[in-house]
Computed example of a mutant assay.
Amino acid sequence: MSSVMRAVVTRWAGALAAVVALLATMLATAGPARAVTPLPGGKANWVVSVGYLNLATANNYRNWVRLGYYAFQPDGTVTTNYWTWNQREQPQRVNAMTADCGAEVPACAVRTVDGFTDDPMGGYQGTFDYTSDGHLAVTWTRTAAGTALAQPVTERWNVTTGLADGRAARITSPTFYGAYGNDVEIPAQGTFSTYANFGVGYGSNASLDRASRATMSQLVDDPRYNAEPYRGAFVVAKASSSDPATRTGIVGREGSGGTWSFGAASNPWKPCATSPCMGWLQPNTSCAGTDKDRVRYLGEIGGGRRNTEEYWCQSLAQGQACYAYNSHPRPMLQIIDDSGEFQGWVGVEAFTHVATSTGLPDSSWVEGYWGLFDMVSAALQPELPN
């Protein structure tokens, strides 16, 4: 071999050695590759409500509810941002918009729970994995800012896959679904979580931003949505009866939604003229008194998937156009499937009783109505009692 060729070979060998050394350094710095953790039901983005609901004899009306987003990553990490309300803090109703719907619908303020019109109130970072018996285990270890929690908390979810032809999935706490009535099984501490005992959520791979959200006009006019009777389960801490002498705080299960639909001629929901909302004067309800009509409103709030529902019995207004006191406010998040279609909501109710003389909370704890629910299309197969 000539001296020129030997020099070329030497230079190439040196360059190759340098490349090998650089790759070895990079691999050592990067550390071992992370294993891929399957997303729950194959879905990354979820809307979820959780809460702690118990008998008054067990928690003395210290119920709370939380509504937010879960975002899962293939590396086994998960984050949440949420809104939360505690019964003992007596959160109040706030005006979100005006329901100028026309016709017989009262032109009143549509109210939601204080804080839901603002940015999320909190968040967590954590990890997720699967137990040997197939449950999804979500463990929160840090705040949204990255501060380590003094005590990590785990949620242990049942997972239902293949909903809406595979375009959505669901997670539930062990006793979220069941028969309607006043004897809901309250899971023992740690069965679902050490800090919460009920929860429900739905996931897909659609984005969680505002662009994915169905509008009020779509719910009324779009044939994909306006003929669907959205229904589900509502687990709620409430009074055992209307008898002041004997009632106490219990946990019951009711149905959410109903057999009505947004576009049916017999259920004339009216879009608001200047606000992103709609209203309906629902006839022949369970409201007390001779006036059985119930006023219902539904509106869009802020960014993301936020909606809010409010309803009240028209008889409570006592001849006035609007009822300013003890309505049912329900913050909700829309469920959107992989194809971008609306499939319903998960939500919470945070009902603080106020005095009709002042409009201020009166610490009448037994009058509270605190719960969480899903209200969904048939394609999401809610487990309703026969």
Rank of each mutant, 00 (worst) to 15 (best):
M1W: 03
S3D: 13
T10F: 15
R11S: 15
W12C: 15
A15C: 08
L16K: 09
A18E: 09
V19L: 14
T25S: 09
L27K: 09
A28D: 04
T29W: 11
A33P: 10
P38R: 03
G42V: 07
N45Y: 08
V47F: 06
V47K: 03
S49G: 15
G51A: 12
Y52D: 07
A58M: 12
R62C: 09
W64M: 10
V65I: 11
R66V: 03
G68C: 03
G68M: 03
Y69W: 10
Y70L: 07
A71F: 10
D75A: 02
T84H: 13
M97W: 06
M97H: 02
D100T: 08
C101Q: 05
E104F: 12
P106M: 05
A107W: 05
A107I: 01
T112E: 04
G122K: 14
G123W: 09
F128K: 03
F128Q: 04
L136Q: 02
T139D: 07
W140I: 01
V153W: 02
T154Y: 02
T154G: 00
N158P: 00
T160C: 01
G162Q: 02
G162T: 03
L163E: 02
D165L: 06
A169I: 00
R170F: 01
I171D: 01
T172R: 02
P174G: 07
A179V: 10
N182V: 04
V184H: 09
V184F: 09
E185R: 14
A188G: 14
T194E: 14
N197A: 05
G199A: 08
V200L: 07
G201H: 10
G203S: 12
G203D: 10
L208I: 05
S212V: 06
M216H: 06
R224P: 01
R224T: 07
N226G: 02
P229K: 14
P229M: 09
P229E: 03
Y230L: 14
Y230D: 10
G232K: 08
V236H: 04
A237D: 07
K238R: 15
S242L: 13
T246P: 03
V251M: 10
V251I: 06
V251T: 10
R253Y: 13
E254P: 03
E254R: 11
G258T: 06
G258C: 13
F262M: 05
A264K: 14
N267M: 01
K270V: 12
P276W: 01
P276S: 06
M278S: 05
G279M: 02
L281H: 00
N284E: 14
T285H: 04
S286K: 11
G289Q: 04
T290Y: 12
R294T: 05
R296A: 05
G302L: 02
G302K: 09
G303F: 05
G303N: 14
G304I: 02
R306Y: 09
N307T: 12
Y311D: 15
Q314K: 15
G319T: 11
Q320I: 00
Y325S: 08
Y325T: 04
Y325K: 03
N326K: 05
S327Q: 04
H328G: 01
M332L: 05
I336L: 04
S339F: 01
W345T: 00
G347R: 01
G347H: 04
A350I: 00
F351Q: 08
T352M: 05
S363K: 15
W365T: 10
W365F: 11
G368I: 05
L372T: 07
